[in-house]
Amino acid sequence: MVALIPRLRRYARALAGDRPRADDLVQDTLERAIAKWSLWRPGTDLRAWTFTIMHNIFVNQVRRSTRDAMATDPAALAELELDDGQVADTLVRINGIERALAQLPDEQREVLLLITLEGLSYDETAHTLGIPAGTVMSRLSRARARLDELLEGTRRGESSRPLKVIK
C-alpha cells in the first residue's frame, strides 16, 4: 500500500487541484483502505481498488476550486525531445494544461487522468469508476476534445508562436 502512495498523490494532485487538498484526499483514501482491508481480495489489482476508494471519497466531498502552482518536472520535459523554440511553446502549454484540466467536468477529468496519466486500460477504468465501458469512451472523447479547445485558447492568449507538432 505504501508503494502506491506516490501514484495516489500524483492522481489526487491532478484530480483535486491544490496540494494540501490532494494530500488530504490521499490520507482519507489510505485510512478508508486500512479500515476496509478485509474487503480487498488478494490477487486482484490493489491499485485499481484504492483508486476506486479515492474516487468514492472525491465524489462525496465538496469540491473547491483553489489551485496552487507546482514545479514542472524537468526530466519529463527533457523526454519530449524538443528544440529551444518548442521548449518555450511547451512551457506555455504545460502551464496551461492544469488550468484547462480544472475546467473539465469532474467525471471527464477522472476518466482522462486514469487513462492518460495512470495508464489504466478502458476496462480497468470502467471497473474502477463503476461505469459502463461505453461511458468511459464517450467521456474520454469529450474530455480530450474540450481540453484541446482550452489548450488552443491558452496558446493563442499567451504565445504568438505558430502551432508546432510535437513528436
Binding site: P6, T72, D73, A76, R93, I97, L117, R144, D148, K167
Partner: peptide
C-alpha cells in the same frame, strides 16, 4: 497528435510527485 501531446503535458506537469 493533439491527444498524444495532452498526455505528454500531463506527465510533464504531474510526474514530479512520483
Amino acid at each position: 497528435q493533439a491527444y498524444r501531446m495532452q498526455r505528454e503535458l500531463l506527465h510533464a506537469r504531474f510526474d514530479a510527485l512520483l
